[in-house]
Design a protein around this nucleic acid. Structure first.
Lengths: 340, 340
DNA sequence: CAAGAATTGATGTGCGCACCTCAAAAATCG
DNA sequence: CGATTTTTGAGGTGCGCACATCAATTCTTG
């Protein structure tokens, strides 16, 4: 039989009450008692029964995901995964919650964070926009005891908050490697499209992309980034101009999560099948593109995994445990038609 | 507050005892009572508190992983992951266990399975070799109530057992796509090396590989599979012969999990940097190969994920629940130097 | 050394459920 | 109809722990 707290008390030569004090960091315990208990824990291999702990505490975890209001297919996918997780975790005393706010307005975001009641939530996972205001607001939220996860995006990493998501520099580098190897020896230009280059994510991806192209595929020439700002008409116009001025486009790299608008635009003026196309994130659109041959590769981070990982991290932090680094790292996936 | 079983009883207009009978499938319950309880469950949104269930049942899950004795780096990785999981799950009432047996002897494997005491284990996860004997032994084990997971390998899928691992046909196809696109337009031969072609895994990968090469990259010519049988000297000799007879080898595909022996052999007779090399599974060797440029891509399935997935499935089955398909599917990962 | 402070012990309660027993009520049957 | 059989109810116990209370013991410190 597994040793219980009672066994532990006996092994430590102390009473159950003192053992309880040590186990739960209660006040009025002598250092000597702490030592004795810890030693006994090691000796008899005591592990708290998490089921009993959970039952006795009888409190549930309250977490909130804060996502943007604007977005397209990937956002829909994310919302879907959060909802899925919500239902799955309902039984495990995890109460999930999603709100969507205009994430590109740092002022409003900061205000939103300031208004969060620390007694209402144990943890917040958020796609945080880049801004000193927001960073400070996050800092204050953390000081009020709310666990914070930077979700998929945002900020030069805060040392006090956890981050869930991929290394965007590496993601960009991976895209570049694929484009370079797929295009082959022949020279050509690479068209790079983003929703916006304002975000740190885009900048990092572009950086990783350029570094690999310059060092390994210098026969390719990267064109300046095109920004769509989520506007289909505008995107289409710009793309037309650029594609007409550059006949030798050998590849297109869409570095934002939403590839539909730029690619549907580009498809009107060029044959995507003939050029190498790499985009980010798995969505119904990018999946179809892979199957059709319009997209050659997708660089993805599994949104379901990301959501679960964020939850695990918030739960661990709430319990004052360390998260399991390995399991919670998000991989940069490379999707081809063959391994969908 | 979350509704408890007591609330449920009240809502159903029955006693706690009857509700308990329904919830736990005990005998002597009228169909009417079952209906009333289920209706009430829907109505008030009752969810059993898993912590309380676990505490009250107070039984732990006993699972065993059965792995091969022979292997190299990937096997070591697997063992490491199982051990890691063992420590991590210890707290969650999961008792793990690993044994290694000579997996290529179907007779011994069948005998081993027959000797397993169904009172000693709730679930077995095994890399099962291909054989009618073994298949029957698995079937009998399942009939005795032991949950069985086909782990990473083996058997035309049994309908009564779960499978954890990748689709090997797709994995082979993915390798072919990468090799085809990386090699480019120029014609050449593809050297294919396996530990053995006896296993279903190897056959399926080869099949997927050939299909993609034939349909999309017909300028490439696949050479007959070379089998190493884990013997370095022998592998080296065969490789030397084949490489001397075929100057135009443009790519090498190692389709077994262990790439070290064949690649170290091939490296003596050819410059791996100049040809496209694709192997399976992430190991210290294949990682180094990627960094050095000796390997261009690794097709991998995350062993840690596989282990956790197998455990989740066995646990769900033991509780008579359905596993969460999405989370437990193992992805075919494509690793490049850039996304390690 | 006495008074106060810090530490420890003994004991009880409750978390939500599984599992058991015994009696009561209801349905079935000859 | 009475005699079974089936179904329900009432109640208790325990799982391992958190948390609270109050008394008893030890340690400080002036």
């Amino acid at each position: 039989m597994r040793p219980t707290a009672k066994d532990l008390a006996e092994a430590a030569g102390l009473s159950l009450a003192t053992v309880d004090r040590v186990l739960n960091d209660r006040p009025n315990v002598s250092p000597k008692a702490v030592r004795k208990v810890n030693e006994a824990i090691e000796r008899i291999g005591f592990i708290r029964n998490p089921a009993a702990v959970s039952l006795a505490r009888n409190k549930s975890y309250r977490f909130r995901f804060v996502l943007p209001t604007s977005g397209d297919l990937y956002l829909a996918e994310l919302l879907h995964r959060v909802e899925e997780a919500r239902l799955n975790m309902k039984g495990d005393l995890v109460d999930l919650d999603v709100v969507q706010i205009a994430i590109d307005d740092p002022h409003r975001v900061a205000k939103y964070l300031a208004a969060i009641d620390e007694n209402e939530f144990d943890g917040i996972a958020m796609m945080a926009p880049e801004s000193p205001q927001v960073r400070d607001a996050i800092g204050r939220l953390i000081e009020r005891g709310v666990k914070f996860v930077q979700f998929l995006s945002g900020q030069e990493k805060l040392p006090t908050a956890d981050f869930v998501g991929v290394d965007n520099y590496a993601a960009g580098a991976t895209a570049a490697k694929i484009i370079g190897r797929f295009v082959g020896q022949r020279a050509g230009k690479v068209l790079i499209v983003a929703e916006t280059m304002q975000s740190l994510d885009s900048i990092e991806r572009r950086l990783g992309f350029d570094d690999v192209v310059n060092s390994q595929f210098s026969h390719l020439q990267c064109l300046p980034s095109i920004e769509t700002h989520g506007d289909a008409r505008r995107a289409s116009q710009i793309l037309q101009r650029v594609l007409e001025n550059n006949q030798e486009v050998a590849a297109i790299y869409v570095l934002s999560s939403e590839a539909r608008i730029p690619l549907e635009g580009a498809a009107s003026f060029t044959d995507l099948q003939k050029i190498t196309v790499v985009v980010h994130e798995r969505t119904p659109f990018s999946e179809r593109g892979l199957r059709d041959g319009n997209i050659d590769a997708v660089i993805a981070q599994d949104p379901g995994h990301a959501v679960r990982s964020a939850i695990r991290i918030m739960r661990a932090r709430t319990d004052l445990r360390e998260p399991h680094a390995a399991q919670d790292k998000i991989r940069i996936e490379v999707l081809l038609k063959e391994n969908l």
